[in-house]
């Protein structure tokens, strides 16, 4: 079965749909967690610490967090590898362009590949910035509130983050609806509902994430 799925374009799209939905679910949780920054350093830092103690005493300190990280890494890699292989195939399948060509599909659809690459690079930067602190001068482990405020006090921190979140909105807008089609749950009767959910998810995620840098820039969070 695994060979049938991985060997087929339809199967690889299924891998993309499932891994995409896993990441989407994580993003919703992540976005809601981020909003705690508006309730002060105490609540935000406490929440960040709680994430490490999640599942105790059954799970050891940070086990749950690492489990989530492993699942996410698998999802990201599966999503990216399928996307790369399918894109290569698509480009090969249409080697010559039309002399008379016009862009037609929606902006969100046309930007899936570049948007995906932007998001991939952003994830790397984001982890180096706020998880490991490698690219973050003055990073204080265990003080996420201060680190977030630091990052969004720089112009490049804001620009990178906001551009990536706009790309995320576009990606989710086409991606969620597409995943439904790939998994065969779309239908004429459900199409409007699915498109609405895709748009609402895209909008809420983008707005929810961007609220944090905007909060820091406007001084609501400091």
């Amino acid at each position: 079965m695994a060979r049938t799925v991985w060997g087929s374009t339809v199967g690889k799209k299924t891998v993309m749909a499932v891994s995409g939905l896993i990441m989407l679910l994580y993003l919703v949780v992540h976005m809601i967690g981020n909003l705690k920054i508006f309730f002060g350093a105490g609540e935000f830092n406490h929440y960040a610490h709680w994430l490490r103690t999640l599942g105790e005493p059954f799970m050891h300190y940070e086990w749950t967090l690492w489990l989530v990280r492993v699942v996410l890494v698998i999802a990201v890699v599966a999503h990216a590898v399928s996307a790369y292989q399918l894109s290569r195939r698509d480009i090969r399948a249409r080697p010559s362009k039309y002399v008379h060509s016009k862009p037609r599909a929606s902006y969100a659809t046309r930007t899936m590949r570049w948007g995906g690459i932007i998001l991939g690079l952003f994830i790397v930067w984001h982890i180096l910035d706020l998880t490991t602190g490698t690219v973050h001068s003055g990073f204080q482990p265990g003080h996420p509130y201060q680190n977030v405020v630091d990052t969004f006090s720089t112009w490049y921190g804001n620009v990178i983050y906001i551009v990536a979140m706009l790309a995320l909105g576009l990606h989710v807008r086409h991606g969620f609806w597409s995943a439904a089609q790939t998994l065969g749950v779309g239908s004429r009767a459900r199409d409007r509902a699915l498109k609405t959910v895709a748009n609402v998810l895209a909008l809420l995620l983008t707005a929810g994430f961007i609220a944090v840098p905007v909060g820091v820039m406007t001084g609501v969070v400091s």
Binding site: K13, R89, D90, R94, R104, Q181, G184
Partner: peptide, 27 residues
């Protein structure tokens, strides 16, 4: 190639085969 659900096919189809046809096949 593979499907990216751009929807161009169903727009061009002279017989009006709907894009949802692909969803049914995936299922």
């Amino acid at each position: 190639g593979g499907c990216t659900l751009a929807g161009e096919c169903a727009t061009a189809c002279p017989k009006g085969i709907p894009l949802m046809s692909i969803t049914s096949m995936n299922k």
